[in-house]
Amino acid sequence: MLNKNKKILPFLYLLPTAILLLVFMIVPILYTFYLSFFDWNLIAPTKEFVGLKNYVEVFTDPINQKVILNTLIYILFLIVLNFVIPYFISLIVKFFIKKMQGAYKVLFFIPSLFSLVVGAMLFTWILNPVSGPIAYLMKSLGMTMPNWSNSGILAITVICFITNWKVFGYNFILLLTGLGSIPANIIDAAKIDGIPKWKLIWNVILPMNRGIAIYVLILTIVQGLQYVFTPINVITTGGPYYGSSNIIYQTYLNAFVLYKTGTSSALAIVTFIVFLVLLFIEIRFVEGKAKNYA
């Protein structure tokens, strides 16, 4: 009896999580996969089987093509703003200054506490082309502020800066922690040998910190594309003419605005497949820990 109990017990502890994952994640993923082969509108009693049509549309429909291109632009901007710059700053804080490291950590993190809706509000104020402070300063210099929400690429830039405002401190802390776990004697040895700092960083530190860097890089893409959903929905709703939409936002539009669950599901599945590829990279390079449970 006791033995049997011991075997069942761990599964009992896992049960709540398992039920949640099953009901709100695993079954939904399968159901979305199923929906991607049908035309449906969320309400009609019947669904029409259309085979791979929805998947073909993902890649041939001109709007979807535009959205996929936008998604790549988003990824590029997000990598530069939310990965490269925080990484650069974390290297500076770790290796080029001696004081106030703790203070920078505390201060940089503050915007991470706030809603992206607050961020969207602040940036629409700061960058308001008529009455915002930047427009005000530009006017006094004799310049005019472009109406950025009328241009897809400018809107994407602003939206990426909004997520940068929120995510910067978080990513900065993760990367700084990674740098902190590099053994001090390696850094000291290089100092004694008189190796220049940037050379040390390029040849030793960056390769040693690769695990956490790849983790943050992948997080930047996977979470970033989902984070931008909020400012897109609050500020542009994907406009002008899908110019600031990305694959995540288009999936939402198709489902809950256009009521095309088939197209929406196919877009979601394509997104998921891309994310799964990133997951495999993550496991390959970062999740060495999984071995402990083998």
């Binding site: 594309l225 489902a255 979601a268």
Partner: peptide
Amino acid sequence: FKGKIIIYLLFVATIFVPFTIVMIPNYLV
């Protein structure tokens, strides 16, 4: 217990599930 590593990797994987793939079924539920 059996399947520990699979379950562990499943947890890691949840971070990589975009909300778009669960939003329609979850909305319906």
